[in-house]
Write a protein that binds this DNA or RNA. Structure first.
Lengths: 135, 135
DNA sequence: CTGACTGCAAACGTTTTGCACGGTA
DNA sequence: TACCGTGCAAAACGTTTGCAGTCAG
């Protein structure tokens, strides 16, 4: 159980019931789409607005409390900010999982063969998760 | 100079002036956004419609004449279908370049540490291109 | 000649904005 | 109390759809 109030404040975000709920939902579920988040928020708040979701997501992104994960073909998902990592996406159930992949040799290849100076890399694997691949 | 008519037909696409122009623009520029494509098409056709652009892009995607490249933070770009490869994106000028990166060891890591069966991978590097990094 | 393509306009889904009210610090 | 956050409604944006006329095969 995390203390979201402190983490929110550390990111210059005022603490509100809506923000605590958003933080909890993202933390518990790992990766959420806007739709998913809105559906869960609607259960906790009788009159939550999509505008509030978007405003908070955008502010949380700006303040690096969360990160946006853009995935080919499917909707963007949001996760709490953590160390750089890659993602596995199930093409069937759309589940997203984190995975650590060492990209050092790839970085070296880029440095050797191009003049690009790299800031970051995004690696996404598409396939079938353990639950979907046998069905 | 490519013969776009033959390639279009090979992908079950009827040959029209608009499609020839789209194929040429994508081939010459490497990677194009919808906006960029529309702007260039507007120069060649007095009354080109965005709907025509979208319909053709979607059909060309379906018939594997072109591929969609989804990039974090920036608009999707489209390229002629070619062998699997990775992309470099300049954060400043938004230029996109192709690069071949060997992902075999990454695939092995996924296979060893998870139960995912991987179909494909998408690797994007963000940074500054040679023209932008010194300015 | 027939079905497919084009262009226009309208519709659609998603995201953003403006404003009045209410809540946090 | 002063400012920020919320919720609603409207607007903005990108993309898709329906239709009538035109063109490719």
């Amino acid at each position: 159980m995390m203390n979201y109030s402190i983490i929110l404040k550390e990111h210059d975000l005022k603490v509100t019931p809506q923000r605590l709920a958003i933080a909890d939902i993202i933390n518990v579920n790992g990766h959420v789409t806007i739709d998913f988040l809105y559906a869960l928020m609607a259960k906790k708040f009788d009159s939550i607005s999509l505008a509030t979701i978007y405003k908070n997501i955008n502010l949380m992104l700006k303040n690096s409390f969360i990160q946006e994960v853009s995935l080919p073909q499917v909707k963007n998902v949001y996760e709490l900010t953590k160390a750089s990592h890659s993602h596995l996406v199930c093409s069937k159930c759309l589940r997203v999982e984190d995975i650590d992949i060492d990209l050092d040799s790839s970085f070296k290849t880029v440095t050797k063969t191009t003049e690009f100076s790299i800031d970051s890399a995004s690696l996404v694997f598409n396939g079938l998760c353990i639950d979907c691949k046998d069905n």
